[in-house]
């Protein structure tokens, strides 16, 4: 990816010239659910979706694995993944062997605020109850991120909770919606509103917020002490993909620390590749020290991934959550 020219992607170009494999890169996944709706029928009917590799969020990757719609990869073809995947990502419950769903970039869901229009914000409870924020708060419509943060703020573990604990957290959210504290539930679209100050604080994603911070230092991301949610966007090879070997070559390429560092310098997400930090020192020492790209132990230890849900649970929890967020 290149900031000055949208059509140029240096890291991908290098892959093409090095391997001789032609890559056609399309940005056609705007939203996990929308994309799922688009390819569901083909994949369920065991047809090809004409893509060799796709990148989806962890929970959607888990669903695809559960439905058996993606392929296991050949470990021998992706040695870099085994060697360089961050230790904290090695034990993802939906892919314990790390050979179906390989993290592309990671990020945190946490709090964000605009220091131009409000004072510092540190906890989820402040976000949900502070009177000066009333009606100027948004939360994510992604259940796992919003509910995970609320569960953690109640002292429960988002990676391992009971239905009763979920209901507790949901009640907390419902109160904030009913009182008018929370104005809206959003996807990525909270970012411009936060930058403008229409919303003063929100639940948001680290990558978006870092990008806003670089334009206006008063927009800050906060990983609350009670815990932040770690998510990953994963590379997957769908069933019937025509060129699995090429997809594996691409995955392996992006797990070279030097390549990963180059990419991380552009995308500002947490880099899942060990060794990239050392490479980044050479490129840009300032970014190498950024904990939201290369998180330190303290931050990692209070970031968790949301519990893996089976279909029944997913539907139940999602239905309850959707009731509260109004749809």
């Amino acid at each position: 990816m290149d900031e000055t020219d949208e059509s140029r992607r240096p890291s991908l170009d290098e892959f093409v010239s090095r391997s001789g494999i032609q890559v056609s890169y399309t940005e056609d996944i705007n939203d996990n659910n929308e994309f799922f709706g688009r390819v569901r029928n083909q994949l369920a009917a065991c047809q090809s979706i004409d893509r060799d590799i796709i990148v989806l969020s962890d929970w959607m990757a888990a669903r695809m694995i559960r439905l058996g719609w993606v392929q296991k990869l050949d470990r021998a073809k992706i040695p870099n993944v085994r060697a360089n995947l961050l230790p904290s990502l090695l034990t993802r419950s939906y892919d314990t062997e790390n050979r179906i769903s390989i993290p592309w970039q990671c990020g945190l869901a946490g709090l964000a605020y605009n220091g131009n229009v409000t004072k510092e914000l540190r906890t989820v409870d402040e976000l949900l109850t502070r009177p000066d924020l009333k009606g100027r708060v948004t939360a994510l419509s992604e259940m796992r991120d919003t509910m995970g943060l609320l569960l953690a703020s109640n002292g429960h573990d988002p990676a391992n909770f009971t239905a009763a604990q979920f209901d507790d957290a949901l009640n907390k959210l419902r109160k904030a919606v009913d009182s008018g504290q929370i104005r809206r539930f959003t996807g990525n679209d909270y970012a411009p509103d936060l930058a403008k100050g229409d919303i003063a604080a929100c639940i948001g994603w680290s990558g978006d917020v870092i990008q806003l911070s670089s334009a206006d230092a008063k927009v800050r991301f906060v990983a609350p002490d009670s815990g932040a949610m770690l998510y990953s966007d994963d590379m997957l090879v769908p069933n019937k993909a025509a060129h699995r070997g090429n997809a594996e070559a691409l995955i392996n390429y992006y797990y070279e620390p030097a390549v990963a560092a180059k990419l991380a310098a552009y995308v500002n997400y947490i880099c899942p590749v060990r060794g990239a930090q050392a490479e980044m020192e050479k490129l840009d020492p300032e970014l190498a020290a950024n904990p939201l790209i290369f998180p330190d132990e303290a931050l990692l230890s209070r970031s968790t991934m949301f519990m893996a849900l089976d279909e029944q649970q997913e539907r139940q929890y999602e239905a309850k959550f959707q009731q509260v967020i109004g749809a």
Binding site: N33, R183, E318
Partner: peptide, 22 residues
């Protein structure tokens, strides 16, 4: 332009098909 408290039936149908898979 609204909040969850203003959601209309179209929003519910959208979420039933795409999010809740109901």
């Amino acid at each position: 332009l609204g909040t969850p408290n203003e959601y209309m039936i179209g929003n519910v149908i959208d979420s039933a098909f795409l999010v809740r898979l109901d």
